[in-house]
């Protein structure tokens, strides 16, 4: 049976944001594009092994700061850049770990990389991959997105 990745990503993301942050996030059909929304942070983890690709969490800087302030229990104006990167990296890690469990082949090993976080105003490009799913979410007036990219298989 074909997996509906958008549906699975939506459920995992809602669970993670609610259980770890206590925030309600709602899947939306609105599009989130970093090029239009000012400074965006991009968290990324690679999946390697029986399934190869990456998972990205694209989050506007203002929302990422709110996430970090909740995770570290600090005021918004006390939240440091390191706190923000750590918090977004961990959310990306949890999202990627859950997605990995959907796509890996049970008979083969599959690994998750450590998360990387970058500040970017453009859409991140991972060479040799194509987008297989993108789910956009809304929290209050903020949009954010989770993208799933699969490595393009070489023709034999």
């Amino acid at each position: 049976m074909e997996i509906d990745f958008n549906l699975e990503i939506s459920q995992y993301t809602k669970d993670i944001w609610e259980q770890i942050l206590g925030l309600e996030v709602i899947p939306t059909t609105e599009d989130f594009s970093p090029t239009e929304k000012g400074t965006t942070l991009a968290g990324c983890v690679q999946i390697m092994g029986s399934w190869e690709g990456s998972v990205e969490l694209l989050c506007p800087a203002e929302l990422a700061k709110k996430v970090a302030s909740i995770m570290f229990g600090t005021n918004l104006d006390e939240t440091s850049e390191d706190d923000i990167k750590d918090a977004l990296g961990e959310l990306t890690n949890m999202t990627g770990g859950n997605i990995k469990s959907l796509v890996h082949d049970a008979d083969q090993e599959c690994f998750l990389s450590l998360p990387a976080v970058a500040v970017s105003d453009i859409q991140m490009h991972v060479p040799g991959t194509h987008e297989v799913a993108k789910a956009t979410f809304k929290h209050e007036n903020h949009l954010f997105a989770v993208r799933m990219l699969k490595k393009v298989e070489k023709k034999k």
Binding site: I16, Q19, I20, M94, G96, G97, N98, K100, L112
Partner: peptide, 27 residues
């Protein structure tokens, strides 16, 4: 306490001596 959610990983950890396994996100 990890995002590694596959049964093979759970078994591997338990065989190595872990006593319990919790998947992130946790409550």
């Amino acid at each position: 306490v990890t995002t590694e959610t596959e049964m093979a990983q759970v078994v591997k950890a338990l065989e190595a001596g872990a006593n319990e396994y919790v998947m992130k996100p946790f409550t």
